[in-house]
Design a protein around this nucleic acid. Structure first.
Lengths: 250, 250
DNA sequence: GTACGCATTTGATATGCATCAAATTCGGCA
DNA sequence: TGCCGAATTTGATGCATATCAAATGCGTAC
């Protein structure tokens, strides 16, 4: 079936970063007004993808990174033997594709989790621009560095944390990212399926489901499908950070 | 005891990247000769650390990244509750500290695993330089992107692979990195303790030890302490990549 | 050379989570 | 509105690996 209406192929417009409500997330004041104008010459706005559409696929020739305007994207890598690892979820104001800048082909696939609009950043042009604008260059260094950090955090979770801790952490991460966008920090819709959560956190779907119900029984949250309400942020924070109640030092 | 002879504090010399045997790893031909000269004005060479010394510590003010000249470095992050995650091992020709460029303080600690010499790259000066040299900027983007990728690979390992697969992968990774430096790909000394391996791979020390002896019994390798000889690279590759012998598709 | 402490190995047991199986609910579409 | 496949939930069982415990080996300093 899958009647993919490829609006993504519609003519792209010159972006208007100045008026974008996300500009302070996407490119936090890194650039002056006249720099913004130059940026807009390079950035292409208006690509829209439906749920399940690929923004780009692993091993396709690398051209661009993408800034999420609305919706949500998940990235994942697939090994030869076919198993997949979800490497990240990207919400509005966040930049997808930085891990592919070292090669000629995309290192992961990026799939729209819901109807999603993005701005395209052709990286050859962007690199020219970052070369001219030190602030923008610095900003890109920061973004990439942050992504390394968050990936290290993920590694920490995967190797040291229990299922409950991982899920609490993810919920709190999403919460704070919604909050950054002036949305509710306690009541939101998960953009991803349980399956994606499980894969991302290195758990089985069943385990994720069980933890959700457990949390619900404990009154920490209320969840109906993807609709989630965090009822006890303090408890969740406590769970997310606790490892052992043992003495603080090794 | 720990009679730390802080040679690291000795006067640093202007680097001579041109004559460095690692320059093709560290900065692969990214820059012309005259650019190299400028690079050498910024890079400081000659810091030496003894085993166990910190090159930098988590939460200390961020200033510099470090290129390994000889020896080996491990990086790790520590959470409030005190547990540690080794996030990487760095061998000669590799660059440490890229994950800290997004903040004002180091995001991890870097510890010398053996007697180690590094070149210091003060990042404020480096950013001026990358700004002037597009090739160098591009190179830095590549390095950072690679680190994101490898961190994603680590995440994949931690969440999807068995203990045997993880260890085979690490050994092969080290092997190919030694080979890049024209050293033996099959016979080398592990720069890190079993403990570090275990932590990095999200395993218990005992498990690492057991897998080593199992591999030894199967004739895949010979290991006496840190001295390792890989006897059957093909088998190790097979183990590292196999997940299921099931049908190739999901 | 010898002794100490730490790293590594080996063994026995416990457990968190995966896996298998099946019921239930949800969401999209006719 | 009602149906169908997919997503989610719930239950029962097994296993890979952690954990606990202890022996052995090794490097280092005296």
């Amino acid at each position: 079936m899958e009647q993919t209406i490829k609006i993504g192929k519609s003519p792209t417009l010159k972006a208007s970063c100045q008026q974008c409500s996300l500009s302070n997330l996407c490119l936090p004041l890194a650039v002056s007004d006249q720099d913004l104008a130059r940026l807009e010459d390079v950035v292409q706005q208006g690509r829209i993808y439906n749920r399940g559409d690929y923004v780009f696929e692993q091993n396709a020739p690398f051209r661009s990174c993408f800034a999420v305007r609305s919706g949500a994207i998940k990235t994942s890598i697939v090994t030869e033997n076919g198993d997949e690892q979800v490497t990240g979820f990207f919400l509005p104001g966040e930049l997808v594709g930085l891990d592919s800048m070292s090669g000629t082909h995309y290192a992961c696939s990026a799939k729209a989790l819901e109807r999603t609009s993005v701005c395209e950043l052709p990286m050859d042009h962007m690199e020219e621009l970052t070369h001219k604008l030190p602030g923008l260059q610095h900003h890109f260094f920061q973004l990439m560095s942050q992504e390394i950090q968050s990936s290290h955090q993920l590694a920490m979770m995967l190797s040291k944390r229990t299922a409950e801790e991982r899920i609490a952490s993810l919920l709190l991460s999403l919460s704070s990212r919604f909050q950054r966008r002036k949305l509710s920090a306690t009541h939101f819709n998960l953009p991803m399926a349980r399956n994606d959560i499980a894969n991302f956190l290195g758990l089985a779907v069943e385990t994720v489901s069980r933890v959700f119900t457990r949390y619900q029984n404990q009154g920490l949250l209320k969840a109906r499908g993807r609709d989630v309400e965090l009822l006890d942020m303090d408890a969740l924070h406590a769970i997310a950070q606790e490892a052992s109640d043992a003495p603080p030092c090794r």
